[in-house]
Every structure is written in structure tokens, then in C-alpha cells.
Design a protein around this nucleic acid. Structure first.
Lengths: 239, 239
DNA sequence: CTTGACAGGTGTACGGCGTACACCTACCGT
DNA sequence: ACGGTAGGTGTACGCCGTACACCTGTCAAG
């Protein structure tokens, strides 16, 4: 009786509700505690109920990724390719930062979800419209690698285990190494502390992930721009 | 009796033997079938026996990573930073290609194994010796990202699921997309087929991962070199 | 030579996982 | 009124990592 009432009280299960709950759970508690059992409990339902709406856990993960990728800004048709690409990559970064589990999930999956393909396709479209040859566009996609999705496998990533163990405390950005480590790896110790971002006058010591990401992104984009101009020049020369 | 004989026949277990067997198993059967139980069976031993030599599976994985990272070429003290860095990154790539499970394992771990730190430290050392400021070296490490370890999360990676499901068949490099996909993502379809690597005359159509990796690597290294010269110039100017 | 500590392999067991399969039940179109 | 079906349930299986008690062979100290 009471059980019936509860059954009636809760919203009926649906693929959409499951996906939302899954993303919320992964956001809050980390991807490693997203089990079918936990998720079901979160929804007030028995684990096997989920399987009436998703084929299995892999499909669930794919759908979650698509949800996140869907948050990335659409392209701006008229715009300059470089600006537009930069903007979208940073938008991708924001999206993935809202869901710290996503990079790991993306890398783990087999990498062919529809939303992901659509995003990549649109990026290539921007390049082609910007005058890139199919060939050069191909190379550029490889060169950008996972950075095109807004992450770069930061080698010392504070935000990274957020994808595993839940929300991080804000955490001082990459504090200095423990002294015994610093002693054995002097060069790492040196660069860990030294990271002012302008020529001078930056308050926060330590490492600003966002700055580093944009630094690398612009390094790539500038190099790519040079390549494109080269290609254009040489095409003109042989005309 | 027979059991005793067998016990005596097999070499005594040791941390080293376990690590070797674990790497071999992951190489041959994929990281996902490296379970403590499988590994123990491979060694003709009961699962719990392993725990006399490794603390737990995480520690085992860390040790495996260190083994792989240890295969990377050491630096050449006198050499030009750019050449040396290029050579070592390509050496890292070779090492990780011998163990397709390693990139995923590295990304999954918490990223602080001794051999890895030593490698990174030596790379920074090369940069510093090459005249990079600690600051610029820091940025460069971020810019290189996982590429410094010889992989780059190729977005369509044929070799990638080798790390999961075992040795791949040689496999034609990134064959064309299935037609219904190609129709929905025209730009992807276009660049999937178009990928000649020189200006002309390349026999194999399709995508050569090694070429793409070096392309991106050189794009970065060239950009980095330019930055360094800039820094040097401006330092000279203000002298 | 005895003894007792200890290193190293064994057996059992627990809790968690994904999910196959049989079931039950409420609703809906005929 | 009734059969089908969509959707939630319960049980169970085979994996996983690993805690814990146990056994056994080796070897140093008495």
C-alpha cells in the first residue's frame, strides 16, 4: 500500500530522467561511483528497471557523453575561422569542466557517438570554409588532438581526479611539490613554483590551468595559421 | 605429491616476475583482461599469492607504467634541445606503441610514479639547458601535454582499442567511413579519405598515425622555438 | 639438533559489479 | 471483457578486488 503510493508519487522512469540523473551523479560523486545500482537507488528504483530504457552501461555512458558534447557552442557561420575555432574550443573546455568525469569517459569509450561526430564535423566545416584544404584540415584535426574537445590531459591535473572521486575542493592551483620529491626532481620543482603568466605582476603564484590551456591553444592556432598562409602562398605561386 | 612437484618446478614468484607477466598479459590480451585472477593463473599460482609481492592492483598498474616509461630513451646531454626533445618524444611514442594499454593506464592513474617524474624532470632539464626560462619551460610542458609521452588521444584511433581488447590485426589505416555516416557528416567524410602526406605521390591513402603525430609535434616544436627566440630577443633588447 | 620466527603460497569468504531471465502488474486498444 | 504489451521487480550468476586465517618449508639462534 505504502509502496504503491511511493511508486505513484515518483515520476515515471524515462531515458531522459535516467540520463540526467546519471550525469548529476557523476558530477557530484565521480564517475567511479556511477554504478547501475547506485543510479537506480538515486532514482528510487530497482537496478534492472534501468535496462528497460538503456541497453547497458556502455550505451548509458555514450549517451551521457553526447549530452555533454551537446553543450558545446554551435559554430558562427560567417566568422573568421581562427576566432570561431578558438571560441568553440574554449566552449568545449567549459562544458567538460562542468563535468570533470567526461574527459576520462570520452577517452575510455570507443569514440563514435553521434553528437561527437557532429561536433567534429562542424569543426572541419569551419576549417574548410576558412580556406583549408581537406588535407590540411585533416592534419589540423590530428594536431589539435583532444585539445579540440577542450582538454589536454594535463600532466599534473588537479581537476582530473575530480572525475573519479567527486567534486574537488577549490584547491590551491598545484601547490609546490613535497620537499623530498623536489630534491630528487630539481627541474620539476623549479618550474612548479615559477609560473608567472605575464612578464610581471601576477599575484597568484602556481599554475593557472586555463591560462596554460589557452597558451597551448594559441600556440597551435598561430602555427596552423602560418601553415595555411604558406599553403595559400605556394598555391598562388604555382598558379 | 604431483602438486608439490609442480610447485617446485615453477620459478618462485617475485615482484619482477609478476610485473613482467602483467605487462605481457596486458600486451597480449588487453588491459581489461588483466585481473588479479587471470594474472595469477598465468603464473600458475593462486590470486592471493600476488599480494605477497604487490600491495594491490593500483600499485601493480603504477609499477607496470614505470616499466614502460623506463623504456624511453635517456637524454643526450650535449645535444640541441629541439632535436633531443623530438627524439625522446618519438622514443616515448615507440615505447607506448609497444604497450597499447599504457596511455589509458597512465591517464587513469593519479600520475605520480617515480619513473614518470624522472622522465618529465629530464625533459624540463633539456629545456632549461637549452636556454628556456623556468617560466617558458613550464608553459611548454603544458603545451606538449600528453604528446610529451608519445601519445595524443588520437580522436579516431585504430590502435586505441588494442589497449582494451588485445592485439589488433594490422588493419588498414582508418578506412573510409560507412556510407550512411559519411552522408550525415560530409566534412569528416571528406578529410577521412583525403590525406596524402607529401605534396603528391603517396601510395597509401588513408591516415598514417605516425605522420600525423610528427606533424603535430613539429608544429609545436617550431612554435616553441619561435617563442624562445622571441624571449631571447626581447631579453637582449632590454639589456 | 631443536625450535621458533618468518617469508611465501593457499583457501575461504565478503561485498560490489553488470546483467540474463522469469515474473508480475497496470494499462490500453479491440 | 480481454489479451498484449510496456515497464518495474526479484533472484541469480559469474566476474571482480582483497581481508583474513591458515599451512608449510627454510633458516638462524639456542
Amino acid at each position: 500500500m505504502a509502496e504503491q503510493a511511493e511508486t505513484l508519487r515518483r515520476a515515471p522512469l524515462s531515458r531522459d530522467r535516467i540520463l540526467r540523473a546519471a550525469v548529476a551523479l557523476a558530477d557530484a560523486a565521480g564517475i567511479e561511483s556511477l554504478s547501475m545500482r547506485n543510479l537506480a537507488q538515486e532514482l528510487g528504483v530497482v537496478p534492472m528497471a534501468l535496462y528497460k530504457h538503456v541497453a547497458n552501461k556502455d550505451e548509458l555512458l555514450d549517451a551521457m557523453i553526447d549530452l555533454v558534447v551537446g553543450e558545446i557552442d554551435p559554430p558562427t557561420p560567417g566568422a573568421d575561422w581562427k576566432q570561431d575555432l578558438r571560441r568553440r574550443v574554449l566552449s568545449a573546455r567549459q562544458a567538460l569542466r562542468r563535468h570533470p568525469w567526461a574527459p576520462l569517459a570520452i577517452e575510455t569509450r570507443n569514440m563514435a557517438t553521434p553528437a561527437l561526430l557532429a561536433y567534429l564535423d562542424s569543426v572541419v566545416g569551419t576549417l574548410r570554409a576558412g580556406g583549408f584544404s581537406a588535407n590540411l584540415a585533416h592534419h589540423v584535426m590530428h594536431a589539435m588532438g583532444s585539445r579540440i574537445l577542450g582538454f589536454s590531459q594535463e600532466l599534473f591535473d588537479t581537476a582530473r581526479d575530480a572525475g573519479r572521486s567527486g567534486r574537488t575542493t577549490p584547491a590551491p592551483p598545484t601547490a609546490a611539490l613535497p620537499p623530498e620529491v623536489a630534491a630528487r626532481f630539481p627541474h620539476l620543482a623549479e618550474i612548479a613554483t615559477a609560473a608567472s603568466h605575464d612578464d610581471a605582476s601576477v599575484v597568484g603564484q602556481g599554475c593557472d590551468d586555463q591560462f596554460e590551456f589557452e597558451f597551448a591553444l594559441d600556440l597551435l592556432l598561430d602555427g596552423i595559421e602560418r601553415l595555411q598562409q604558406q599553403a595559400w602562398t605556394s598555391a598562388r605561386r604555382t598558379r
